[in-house]
Design a protein around this nucleic acid. Structure first.
Lengths: 241, 241
DNA sequence: GAGTGGTCTAGACCACGCA
DNA sequence: GCGTGGTCTAGACCACTCT
């Protein structure tokens, strides 16, 4: 291999996952349909069963299918709410709706708040943090007010990139080969204060769902953080477990 | 085999999961420790690697360990909050605290509410529903007010069983061989009304986390439902994804 | 009985972290 | 360079659902 090409190898099970996920989202497989059996998928895609099963297992974890012994893999009813409690979610479940992202505070380097909502490593503390605030709107109504904190470690030119109507996840993957792998979150119901009420266009005191999230990536030791305020009056958050 | 013994076979990967989970909860493996490597676990427990990996994969999904390529399986910091957003959770993360369950309304057979928070099958609608209300207290403070709806299908003598300080999950498993496999949930922040405020001992209007859950089981087509009101003032809910 | 997913074996090669 | 977890192969037997 003579070029400096990205020899990024996408695992076979991941490729199959993406294909099936796409077909489900496009309606090629509809709710209640049976996917091809595991053995059929093996033949179609020239894989062995464990490989196929890993793809299907991921689809189950992300809520796209359910399996039934002796029957098959059944396409699941897609959530009506907003799937933000799983990795796949955040914006994917909103497809088809009028979705908009507005930058309230552009990415800029700051000191970490102290105390911070999660424990930070020394490396994180010393590196400073890239701070940004965004508002997510669905059908012109603000639903999420999102404050993001990213350790300023090896992310050249990050603060000059644009995020308008573009997923942060996509930016991290596209420019830095950082993939989100999972995370943890704390949930609370809190009353809106004046600032949150202003952004979400609700009166102060209205119950708001507050999520504090730590998001892990494939870069070892690198994770980022988000404090997310959701107006759940019209749209419930949706999760699977 | 001459007896009517329950020849329930617990899969090997599940047995290993339970052993490692127990050791982590007991502190034999502490936060940050490395578990034995996959190859070591293979030898110790006379399993092959895929079997070991399935056990470890379940531990990752339930938040007990994280894996790092080239390094090993690292025991994860256990959540400080209340892990109710994953199957393993509900009460398990509260071990060590003073936990109490109080029955407000004993199980009794009713008609389903119409409309109900989830779509019901015809079989479910026709069978009626076992209804109960419970209050969960931690250190004498009420945290959850839980309304449970169970389809009245093939559950002999269910309404006469006692649930005081006993897990509903354990009852279902012990008497009916029903295992919880997963589910879905909708989350909202709502103001407490008078009734909820009375049970959770908070003033009306205080923000409360409302979870509507559909819980799947290993019995095909059998799931049950829960409407859960949580006071998150002192304890955040905790979840992994 | 035929087909399905659930479990399991016994190997293999790779990329990555660490010393 | 060695051990780790990540991916993958090519089979096997079982319990379950459907007809």
């Amino acid at each position: 291999m003579t070029t400096l090409e990205k020899d990024k190898k996408i695992p076979q099970y991941r490729q199959l996952y993406e294909i099936l996920r796409k077909h489900i989202l496009e309606g090629i497989y509809k709710e209640g349909d049976l996917l091809p059996s595991e053995n059929e998928l093996c033949i179609i895609h020239s894989m062995t069963r464990p490989t196929v099963r890993q793809a299907l297992s991921d689809l189950v974890n992300d809520g796209f299918i359910k399996k039934q012994k002796g029957k098959g893999s059944i396409v699941h009813q897609l959530p009506k709410g907003i799937g933000i409690l799983s990795v796949a979610g955040t914006t994917s479940a909103l497809s088809g709706q009028n979705l908009e992202t507005r930058i309230l505070v552009k990415p800029n380097v700051k000191q970490w708040a102290d105390p911070f909502m999660f424990n930070l490593s020394e490396a994180e503390k010393n590196s400073g943090c890239i701070y940004m605030e965004r508002l997510r709107l669905v059908n012109r109504k603000p639903l999420f007010y999102d404050i993001t904190y990213i350790p300023n470690i090896n992310l050249p030119r990050f603060t000059s990139r644009s995020f308008e109507n573009k997923s942060l996840f996509d930016t991290l993957r596209g420019f830095y080969q950082i993939e989100v792998k999972g995370g943890e979150q704390k949930l609370r119901a809190i009353p809106a204060n004046k600032e949150i009420g202003k952004y979400l266009e609700v009166p102060a005191g209205q119950p708001i769902l507050h999520l504090e999230r730590k998001i892990d990536t494939n870069r070892v030791g690198f994770c980022f953080y988000s404090s997310l305020y959701c107006n759940t009056e019209d749209h419930a958050l949706f999760g699977i477990f």
